[in-house]
Design a protein around this nucleic acid. Sequence first.
DNA 1: TACTATACGGAACGTTTGCTCCGTTTACGA
DNA 2: TCGTAAACGGAGCAAACGTTCCGTATAGTA
Lengths: 185, 185
Amino acid sequence: MKKQPRADAVRNRRRILQVAHDVFASQGPGVPIDRIAEQAGVGAGTIYRHFPTKEALLLAIVTEGIDRLIVWIRELLEIDPGNALYQFVAGILERGAADQGLAADLASSGVDIDAELPDRHRAFHHALDNLVAQGQRAGTVRSDIDGSDLKAIIVGLQAMQQHREAHLDAPLKIICDGLRPPSAK
Amino acid sequence: MKKQPRADAVRNRRRILQVAHDVFASQGPGVPIDRIAEQAGVGAGTIYRHFPTKEALLLAIVTEGIDRLIVWIRELLEIDPGNALYQFVAGILERGAADQGLAADLASSGVDIDAELPDRHRAFHHALDNLVAQGQRAGTVRSDIDGSDLKAIIVGLQAMQQHREAHLDAPLKIICDGLRPPSAK
DNA sequence: TACTATACGGAACGTTTGCTCCGTTTACGA
DNA sequence: TCGTAAACGGAGCAAACGTTCCGTATAGTA
């Protein structure tokens, strides 16, 4: 049985994660570690004691983001299975989907997230499959798609959000209409 | 009247642009200039004589890409105005839209392309507006969208393409169906 | 062929950045 | 309160990268 970490270590770990999340989300993953240390009010050494490498810090942030999405999907499905998919898609554009936008940046700089976090990868895809399947069961979602198609759509939405130079109401409507079954339109 | 540049200078400029385009498209804009020089078989100094800065080189590549897209849209509209939009959208996923994927990377690293290339920006948006308007006139495109909505869709598609870990047939179908007017489905 | 302006190659420089090291501080059990 | 293991801060190191500089090579011209 491992001993518990000291109180200040726990506090600093959380603070670093929060600050790093905000800074990376707003300025991209290129921000130097020193700047994050400064913002968090700790030394650079402290960050490296908690996260062995910059990439590890980024992965920790992305992991938290994925977990949040999974929980959120579960909540939406409990409340309204038929419309959960549409609320999810709309919500990605509203609330910051910056966590995953970060994931996209990470991926484009050569890190294979799915390979680094195989368990989250499975859990996330499982959640997406559920989201689609329950919509299909309720008759609100077209029957010729599955979770991985939804994942592609999400990637697209997040890119739109990062690029947003105008309202995204119309693109959102386009996608939602495209997701509905041929009958209901 | 300016004198013409030397033949080897012209050759090198083209070669640098081609090689840089391929390397950046396949490995992202983070690749060091020295590597591009090596690949192109020239010295680093030669690159900097033709392009004052790395950012200038990236902008030159993006400019070429945008121009290609504009020409392509014009061609599609001449052949089949009603379906040009759908051929364009599908084509972005097929042929490498890597040029613009590069543009996205550039943008996410703090360069405002629209501000740096105001004329291309205008020309591109004009082409997109045309693409949408002619589809609407033919009755194949829903009437409540315009060129900037299409731009957002393109950004999304390019992100999907960069991330592609499976076929994108279904997501493409979703978007095309969403673009059609309510009647035809 | 000989001359010269133009262009080239690649070593070198300064800066930035990820990461380590170690002397100092702090939490916490006894 | 005291002792010690755990944690901290931030100076410093090495590698990577953008950019410059200058001696050399070459295209174009007479």
